[in-house]
């Protein structure tokens, strides 16, 4: 009974809106107060598919998103672990500093960042965009992973020591698998945040790094609801694709752990 309720909630909150958007994207002249659409048209999808940059943009978006997630985990896992289980002094200060990037409005620092990127030679390049996407993602990643590590009893490290497993082994074979839900949340969150960056990508990427929002957001300035709806469906599909990739990766990782 409870699971039926859970599934219908999930359906209602996630699937129905996307379905509705999809419907919106293939209708023609579906206006308030018509309850049902009367005419159908694939025009919006022709517009989206017809954009000469769409394929490249999808690939770039995935590449940027996946790399951003990888860097987030690479930097976020040790940082979160140290914050949670390390005996650091001034943890509160450190946390505040780590959280600063999302408290400061991006536009206020965009120019400074752009100058830095120019000096580093990373402006107008995908690596600069990836680097800059760490700014709005890493604080969240550290937060999510930190609370994940907080839920893991500190006794595990002692257990590893007494069983004689090297710390790193215990970390990879024991703690990380236990962190799987937190890791998944952090990864999806970082991916979605990276996916939605418009201003940072536009300014640092200079149009040379075209991600999906660069094609998609300008349409918000038009009344073309069908195209906006269509793009939104594509937009919503990317995290789903990412989640699928993630879960396969995790399954592969678990399989490897079991095999060896």
């Amino acid at each position: 009974m409870r699971s039926i309720l859970g599934w219908s909630m999930l359906l209602l909150v996630f699937v129905v809106p996307v379905l509705f958007l999809f419907l919106r994207s293939i209708t023609f002249g579906w206006r308030y107060p018509d309850l049902f659409p009367s005419d159908w048209s694939m025009r919006a999808w022709h517009v989206i598919a017809g954009d000469p940059q769409i394929l490249q943009a999808l690939l770039t978006t995935m590449l940027v998103g996946i790399t951003v997630v990888a860097l987030n985990l690479l930097l976020g896992i040790p940082a979160a672990y140290a914050l949670s289980h390390g005996r650091l002094k001034g943890v509160v200060w450190l946390e505040t500093i780590l959280f600063l990037p999302i408290l400061v409005p991006v536009l206020a620092i965009a120019m400074g960042l752009h100058i830095t990127m120019i000096r580093l030679g990373l402006a107008d390049h995908i690596s600069g965009v990836i680097l800059i996407h760490l700014l709005p993602t890493l604080p969240y990643t550290i937060r999510v992973l930190r609370s994940g590590f907080d839920r893991i009893a500190p006794g595990w490290r002692r257990l590893g020591d007494t069983l004689g497993a090297p710390r790193i082994t215990l970390f990879v074979t024991g703690l990380l698998p236990m962190m799987r839900p937190s890791l998944r949340s952090a990864a999806v969150l970082a991916f979605v945040i990276s996916l939605s960056q418009y201003v940072l990508t536009a300014i640092i990427g200079g149009g040379q790094v075209t991600t999906l929002p660069l094609l998609y957001y300008p349409f918000f300035d038009s009344a073309d609801q069908a195209v906006i709806a269509g793009f939104s469906v594509v937009f919503a599909a990317l995290p789903a694709v990412f989640l699928l990739l993630w879960e396969s990766l995790m399954a592969g990782f678990t399989y490897l752990l079991r095999r060896t």
Partner: peptide
Amino acid sequence: SRQPMDAPEFLSRLMTE
């Protein structure tokens, strides 16, 4: 190729450059 970017963004970029 056209680079979809609004005037505020490209002006801000050019100023920094």
